[in-house]
Design a protein around this nucleic acid. Structure first.
Lengths: 214, 214
DNA sequence: TTAAAATATGACAACCGATTCAGGTTTTAT
DNA sequence: ATAAAACCTGAATCGGTTGTCATATTTTAA
């Protein structure tokens, strides 16, 4: 009900292998169903149908439709972050990491479009969890930028502002090129042109002064 | 129903001064109601109550709850664009215009928070109109960047990619600093630090090479 | 093997909100 | 002044959804 609720937790975690399996099936089905139908159009019926269980079974593991959305947001967010972190190891400086990170993000959203919809809809079902998702992300991002500043890899500046700007930049590029322009996401190197444009932008900005392109 | 519907238009535009007034009252009430309660939680009842008219009156001017949302998106989008255009005249080059534009955008969203919510929720009620909103915005933005490139005000590069990146940048900065951090939006020059950070970012990027700060 | 604990079932109660409609009231135009 | 058009009313309809419950099945553990 409230847009800031957070408490009443799962009625009880599964105590059996079978239970765990069923719970997972439902969670996955919810991801797919919310992803294609959207949170509001998707009924609990649709979820359980997709999971191949009865209506009532849903309530053995989740107290409400709202709760399973929260669960999903945390789950998907965790997976995304893990994926991005993995894709960025091996880069030698912050700017290289930014490029790799953007590429990985675009690819990931292209492969997991549900994430976008679930997350964005969650915003209006439970503000708090959405806000926390991005604040968490931003904290980590800011820290990395601060470290890079200290190491002399990037110019000094307000890194919190920059972190939010960069998150927005990635978000919108993904929306446009990974989700909407499906043609643009075909092939191994589909996002290279975008990453290249952004690489130049992140390195040199838009002003004409910097003369070398490397 | 469908997420891509677009047709059945208003049942009939008001033919009287009174009718026009009532229609306007309802539209304004819808903006407020959607803005605070959200599209799904807001009932037609809430809207008509806020407007001070009977339920049935709603359907004299709008065929459905979905249609009034579409109307609202176009209306609010139009107003925003007009405002931004007005705030940017008098700037002498693209980079200055970017700064002024960002400042104006942050201020505007801080003053009209409903816009954000209405627009973002519209995305899941009628994809098409949301997409068109941003595509339209992006087209104009890209054109302006192309002009600036031609004039030698900014470095060459893919301006469509840049347009989407810049829209995302503004969007997220507004979300964080104009909508969430309410403290940050108090006072005349509340957003100056942000604009300053972004000014440096847009001009010089993040790399260390460019040495002068101006 | 068997009783207790977990899980699963699916019909159904209780509720909610969008839209309709038959009839009143106000405005317009002649 | 008065008929026609426009506008307004709000109770009732109607479709649909969440969450419950009594019962049945499966798994666990002794």
């Amino acid at each position: 009900m409230s847009t800031t609720t957070q408490a009443p937790q799962s009625p009880g975690a599964p105590k059996t292998a079978r239970g765990a399996r069923t719970r997972a099936k439902i969670l996955k089905a919810a991801e797919d169903t919310f992803g294609t139908l959207g949170y509001h159009r998707a009924g609990v019926t649709d979820i359980t149908k997709a999971a191949g269980v009865a209506q009532g079974t849903f309530y053995t593991y989740f107290t409400s439709k709202e709760e399973i959305l929260r669960e999903l947001v945390m789950d998907l967010g965790h997976k995304l972050r893990a994926h991005l972190a993995a894709q960025v190891i091996g880069t030698s400086d912050r700017l290289e990491a930014e490029e790799q990170g953007l590429r990985a993000f675009l690819q990931y959203l292209s492969d997991h479009p549900s994430l976008y919809r679930v997350l964005q809809e969650a915003q209006f079902v439970d503000q708090a969890i959405y806000q926390e998702y991005y604040e968490t992300f931003a904290r980590g991002y800011t820290d990395m930028l601060n470290t890079a500043t200290r190491k002399g890899e990037i110019r000094p500046g307000n890194n919190q502002h920059r972190a939010w700007a960069l998150m927005g930049l990635s978000h919108f590029l993904a929306l446009k090129y990974a989700l909407w322009d499906q043609r643009a996401s075909e092939g191994e190197h589909a996002f290279d042109p975008i990453v290249e444009t952004m690489s130049d932008f992140l390195r040199n900005g838009l002003a004409l002064n910097g003369r070398d392109k490397s």
